[in-house]
Simulated assay, not measured.
Amino acid sequence: MENNPDTEKASNYNDLEKMTTVDILNNINSEDKTVPESVEKQIPAIEKLVKEITEKLKLGGRLFYIGAGTSGRLGVLDASECPPTFGVTDQMVIGLIAGGDTALRNAVENAEDDTEQAWKDLQRYKISKKDVLVGIAASGTTPYVIGGIKEARKNGITTGCVTCSSESPLAEASEYPIEVITGPEFVTGSTRMKAGTAQKLILNMITTSVMIKLGRVKGNKMVDMQLSNQKLVSRGTRMIVEELGIEVKEAEQLLQKYGSVRAAVEAFRSA
């Protein structure tokens, strides 16, 4: 299995270059439609990992993602979106990619093949038993990720993974594996497609559900979001108007004064 992960199986389609544009698009779309169903089958596994992460973060722990290539980029993306969305520190969810930040834009040769580098990268953040480490690898065979997960477990750190191959070395190494089997890609081995989509959906589910459980969402609103642009200021103002039934101008003033929807609403109600 290690030499032939599910994600490397030959495409169900052939002679792609002979297809019309609309056929290419329809066939990609047909494959993409299968992804949410594959994710749905893994909800029990996702739930177990989410509960572990939530408990650790409640006690001051952190969530780390490690990955290479597309998987690494998706982890960094998810981590980077938590502070503006939920108003948490950028040290609560941390994404690391094999090859460092350079690898976000460019392939770094052999970066994913080093079994020891992930643990070295994690050591810079003083990862400990209070934290959770989630490895992301479509094939489930990436040495960088597997090495990091194995070393973390040796050190008593809670581990999970998101992979798109069955019975992979990564899943075997992880305490809380999520194995979402997306099958062959439209372009053989191009895991930026279905596998990447599945990983993105799962990472969305993990951090969103954890942040809801941590109280970072009220009703259905991002009450702690960072007000980093005018669109978000306007959104925050609307939230306050809807919550308190006050005029827009007063809502704007409250938001500017207190810096977040939550703080503004609490200050108004306690006045």
Rank of each mutant, 00 (worst) to 15 (best):
V180C: 14
G147I: 11
V145I: 08
I178L: 02
S168H: 12
G156R: 10
T163P: 03
T163H: 07
V180G: 05
S168T: 11
P143S: 08
E167F: 14
P169T: 14
I146D: 05
P169R: 11
I146A: 04
E179F: 06
I157Y: 02
T163S: 15
R153P: 01
Y144R: 06
K154L: 11
I157P: 01
Y144S: 09
I181T: 05
E172G: 09
I181P: 00
K154G: 00
I178W: 01
Y144M: 09
A152Y: 02
S174I: 03
S174P: 01
E167Q: 14
Y176A: 00
A173P: 10
A173W: 11
I178R: 02
P143T: 08
E167D: 15
R153I: 06
K154W: 03
E151T: 12
G147Y: 05
I146Q: 05
K150A: 03
A173I: 13
S166A: 15
N155S: 02
G160H: 07
E167K: 15
K150P: 00
A152C: 07
Y176S: 00
T163A: 14
S174F: 00
E175S: 07
P177N: 09
S166C: 07
Y176G: 00
P143L: 10
L170P: 07
S166P: 04
P169V: 15
N155K: 13
V162L: 15
I146K: 05
P169I: 15
G147F: 05
T158L: 06
V162M: 14
C161T: 15
I181W: 03
E172W: 08
P169D: 13
N155E: 10
K150S: 04
P177W: 10
I149Q: 03
Y144C: 09
K150C: 00
G156M: 07
V180T: 15
S166I: 12
S168M: 14
I181S: 01
I178T: 07
I157Q: 04
E179C: 09
I146F: 04
I149G: 01
Y144V: 13
N155P: 01
L170C: 12
T159D: 04
G147A: 07
E175V: 02
A171D: 13
I157R: 05
A171I: 11
E175D: 11
E179G: 01
T158G: 01
S174M: 02
K150I: 06
E179V: 03
A173T: 13
E172H: 11
E167I: 10
I181K: 06
V145W: 05
N155M: 03
S168K: 10
E179D: 04
N155W: 05
T158E: 04
S166K: 15
I157D: 03
R153N: 15
I149P: 01
A173D: 11
G156C: 10
S174H: 00
G156L: 08
N155L: 02
E175R: 06
P169E: 13
T158V: 15
C161P: 09
A152V: 08
E179T: 06
S165C: 14
K154A: 04
G148L: 10
